[in-house]
């Protein structure tokens, strides 16, 4: 099943961060609040937007949740969560 997670770029270094239910932020997609309902997501997003010091341009993404496994639906967000697929670039 798909759920919604709120994400954005950390102001301090631009890394992807994901919102927990208590409004704090984590680096791992799997530790974020994955909510079912759009109104829950909207509430998290509103809270994120008021946290400009921590996060830039927050938005919601769709994820699939299977047990402990959480994976972004869009390929862009998969790469964003996991880092460049060419980490050893040189």
């Amino acid at each position: 099943m798909t759920r919604l997670i709120v994400t954005g770029a950390a102001t301090v270094d631009g890394r992807p961060i994901y919102m927990r239910r208590d409004g704090s932020w984590v680096d791992q997609l799997s530790k974020a609040a994955a909510v079912d309902q759009q109104d829950e997501c909207d509430a998290l997003l509103a809270r994120a937007r008021s946290d400009e010091g921590t996060v830039c341009d927050p938005y919601a993404i769709r994820v699939t949740v299977e047990g402990e496994s959480v994976r972004a639906v869009s390929f862009r967000e998969v790469i964003r969560a996991g880092g460049p697929t060419v980490a050893a670039t040189v």
């Binding site: 770029a9 102001t11 270094d13 631009g14 890394r15 992807p16 400009e52 830039c56 341009d57 862009r76 790469i79 964003r80 880092g83 460049p84």
Partner: peptide, 22 residues
Amino acid sequence: ITENEFKPLRLQNGLYMQMHAY
């Protein structure tokens, strides 16, 4: 200052926000 206020300032100094970092 907000990100919206800061964005044009950083862009004038060549600083973008990309997928994983600035």
